[in-house]
C-alpha cells in the first residue's frame, strides 16, 4: 500500500467552497471526469448533517501498458460518500473505485473545513491509500508507485480546476449579492 497526503488552503469562506464543490465538474482542467450522478441524499434532522452518495464516471488515464496487462475498460466508476456538517463547517468526502477494485484500490479522503484562525479561508486536506491486489503481486510495488504518481498529477490539476470554479463562483455570488442589494 502507498499513501498520498496533501494540505492546501483556499482563500474563500467555507460556505462558498462547499457550495462550489457541488459544481466542480465539468471544468476544463478535469476532462477525465465524464459524468456525476447523485444516488442518495439525506439530511439528519437531529444533527443537520447532509450525506450524499454519488457515482462518478471517469476516463481512465492509467499508462497503456497497465491497461493492456489488466484488460480494464477505459471508463471507470467511483463511489463517493460526502458528509457535510454545517455546524462544524466541515465537508468530508470519501471515494473508492468500484471497477477494477480486485486489481487495485484507491481510497481517497478529502476534507474542506473552515480555517479556525481565519473564517475567510478554508483548509483542504487530501489523502489516498493505493493498494494493488494480489493478482498483481509481482508488480504491485511498481504499479502502486505509478498510480501514486498519477494520483499526484491528477490531484494537482484537480486543485487548479477547483480554483477556477471557485473564482467563477465567487464572481457569481458577488453578482447575486449586489443584485439583491440593488433591488432591496
Amino acid at each position: 500500500m502507498k499513501l498520498f497526503q496533501f494540505v492546501h488552503q483556499y482563500n474563500y469562506p467555507w460556505s462558498q467552497v462547499s457550495a462550489a464543490n457541488w459544481q466542480k465538474y465539468p471544468n476544463e482542467k478535469c476532462p477525465h471526469v465524464l459524468h456525476v450522478d447523485v444516488l442518495n441524499r439525506a439530511v439528519d434532522p437531529v444533527t443537520g448533517v447532509l450525506t450524499t452518495e454519488r457515482l462518478i464516471a471517469v476516463q481512465q488515464n492509467a499508462p497503456a501498458i497497465i491497461m493492456k496487462l489488466i484488460g480494464g475498460s477505459s471508463t471507470q466508476f467511483v463511489r463517493e460518500i460526502s458528509v457535510i456538517d454545517p455546524r462544524q463547517k466541515k465537508l468530508t468526502m470519501k471515494s473508492i473505485n468500484l471497477t477494477m477494485s480486485h486489481l487495485i484500490s484507491c481510497e481517497e479522503t478529502v476534507t474542506y473545513q473552515e480555517d479556525p484562525t481565519d473564517a475567510s479561508r478554508t483548509v483542504f486536506t487530501q489523502s489516498a491509500a493505493i493498494t494493488a491486489g494480489s493478482t498483481l503481486s509481482r508488480m504491485a510495488n511498481y504499479i502502486e508507485d505509478v498510480s501514486v504518481k498519477r494520483f499526484q498529477q491528477n490531484a494537482a490539476v484537480g486543485r487548479q480546476g477547483f480554483q477556477m470554479v471557485l473564482e467563477r463562483f465567487a464572481v457569481m455570488a458577488e453578482g447575486s449579492t449586489s443584485a439583491s442589494s440593488d433591488t432591496a
Binding site: 444516488l39 439525506a42 439528519d44 434532522p45 450525506t51 457515482l55 463511489r79 460518500i81 468500484l98
Partner: peptide, 17 residues
C-alpha cells in the same frame, strides 16, 4: 458493484429522511 461497496460502507440513511 454498488451493492458490494454498500455492504462494506452502507449509505447512512436508515433513520433520516
Amino acid at each position: 458493484l454498488l451493492a458490494e461497496a454498500r455492504k462494506e460502507s452502507p449509505f447512512p440513511s436508515s433513520s433520516s429522511t
